[in-house]
Amino acid sequence: MIIHPLITKTEELSALCERLAKSDFVTVDTEFMRENTYWPELCLVQIANTEEAAAVDPKADGLDLSPLLDLLTDNEDVLKVFHAGGQDVEIIYNFTGRTPHPIFDTQIAMMAISQSEQIGYSNLVESWQGLTIDKGARFTDWSRRPLTERQIEYAIGDVTHLAKIFPKILKRLMKTGRGQWLDQEMEKLADPANYRNDPTEAWKRIKAAGRNAAMLGRLKAIAEWREIEAQGKNIPRGRIARDETLADLASHPPKQQSDLAKVRGLSQGWKDNDIGKRLMNTIAKSSPLTDDEMPPRAPRGAPLGKEGSLVADLLKLLLKIRAREIDVAARLLARSEDLELLAAGVRKNLPILEGWRYEVFGHDALDLVEGKLAFAVVDGKLKMTRVEDAEEVPVTE
């Protein structure tokens, strides 16, 4: 494989992307920093196919990333392969408003051919290639220039190894016939809605007790305010105020600005500075959530009550058994919250009762809830048996 020197010129990047556009797939990775900024700071992009690989320096003076971004987001003929690519996709979306498509994530794919829930990249390489990755540059400051040869070599390794591993994973998927299981998961990863940063929706990520419309209305208002403040200053939202502080402010709104000095998580300066004034104005202008805005009541726990949690535990046990039997990650088959909803009597809009998940697991899960399946120990292993198939054991006096 040809490893190119660090690309810093638009002409070099255009030529590389023109060649890569003829590939069936490219492997992609990014290096970024986000500890001190709201928006991730893109520091390096690595890309490869089976013949060549390169690292691209987005911080190089005069470099136009358009050829690379167009290849990733506009070319439907080239499959874009990532490993745990959620944050990489987010960065590309921030630049373009588009996401890479078609897309393939090897971490997700491993869930369909092994019991690995979230296999790390170094473990992936060791598993498929028997190589140990040097992690010395893992926690480097990628924003500093110049980059060392060791840093560039480490970064490019992320895509050169992946270019060799991906065809093997694809072959295994084809052999097991589980490729279609991943279609929905990959489309989710590529869905732009996952990466849109709408400040008006920020409150939904904050845990707050209760369903009081006025309290939630305040939470919505101040969460939106925090996002806008953080974006304007390009600092992490937690530097403005932590989630717990926002929840506290929404539940116990201060009557006047001087009261902000008593709020845990805010400094004394908030009692008379401009940001404190803007926060107080936001709280004052907030309004209760409408009925349409209120979060839906979770049916969890009803109508089975305490018995429902026992049924859910049995379903989770069934999930472990099935995942082990077919060598697949349990999380790919079902989420815990879906099992709890099934135990509570919910039958509509559950992924485990649709498509391939129903065939592989959901059908048996439903039978277990309805008393058609039972647990048994066979040859020292826990297995499931159908109640109607079991022989009736006579009762002796």
Score class of each variant (00 low, 15 high):
Met1Pro: 12
Leu13Gln: 03
Leu20Trp: 02
Val28Cys: 03
Thr30Glu: 04
Glu35Ser: 15
Leu44Gln: 13
Val45Trp: 05
Ala48Asp: 08
Ala54Leu: 06
Val56Met: 09
Asp61Arg: 11
Pro67Gly: 02
Glu76Asp: 14
Ala84Arg: 06
Gly86Asp: 15
Gln87Thr: 15
Asp88Tyr: 12
Asp88Cys: 11
Val89Ser: 07
Asp105Leu: 11
Gln107Tyr: 06
Met111Ser: 15
Gln115Ser: 11
Gly120His: 10
Tyr121Glu: 07
Ser122Asp: 15
Ser127His: 14
Gly130Ile: 06
Ala137Gly: 00
Ala137Phe: 08
Glu149Tyr: 03
Gly157Lys: 01
Thr160Arg: 02
Lys164Ile: 07
Phe166Trp: 14
Lys168Val: 12
Ile169Asn: 01
Arg172Phe: 04
Leu173Cys: 09
Thr176Arg: 10
Leu182His: 02
Gln184Pro: 00
Gln184Leu: 09
Arg196Leu: 12
Thr200Trp: 05
Glu201Arg: 15
Ala202Leu: 01
Trp203Lys: 05
Lys204Phe: 08
Met215Gln: 13
Gly217Pro: 06
Ala221Ser: 13
Glu224Arg: 10
Glu224Ala: 15
Glu227Thr: 03
Ile235Glu: 11
Arg237Trp: 09
Arg242Ser: 09
Thr245Tyr: 03
Asp248Arg: 10
His252Phe: 12
Pro253Glu: 13
Lys255Ala: 14
Ser267Tyr: 09
Gln268Cys: 00
Gln268Trp: 12
Arg278Gly: 09
Met280Glu: 04
Asn281Thr: 12
Lys285Met: 06
Lys285Gly: 03
Ser287Arg: 14
Thr290Asn: 10
Lys306Gln: 13
Leu310Val: 14
Leu314Ile: 00
Leu318Trp: 12
Leu319Phe: 02
Arg324Lys: 13
Ala330Phe: 07
Ala330His: 11
Leu332Cys: 03
Leu332Glu: 04
Leu339Ala: 05
Leu339Asn: 02
Leu341Trp: 06
Val346Tyr: 02
Asn349Trp: 07
Asn349Met: 07
Gly355Met: 02
Trp356Met: 09
Glu359Ile: 02
Ala365Leu: 01
Leu366Ile: 03
Gly371Phe: 10
Leu382Ile: 09
Lys383Asp: 10
Met384Pro: 08
Thr396Trp: 11
Glu397Met: 09
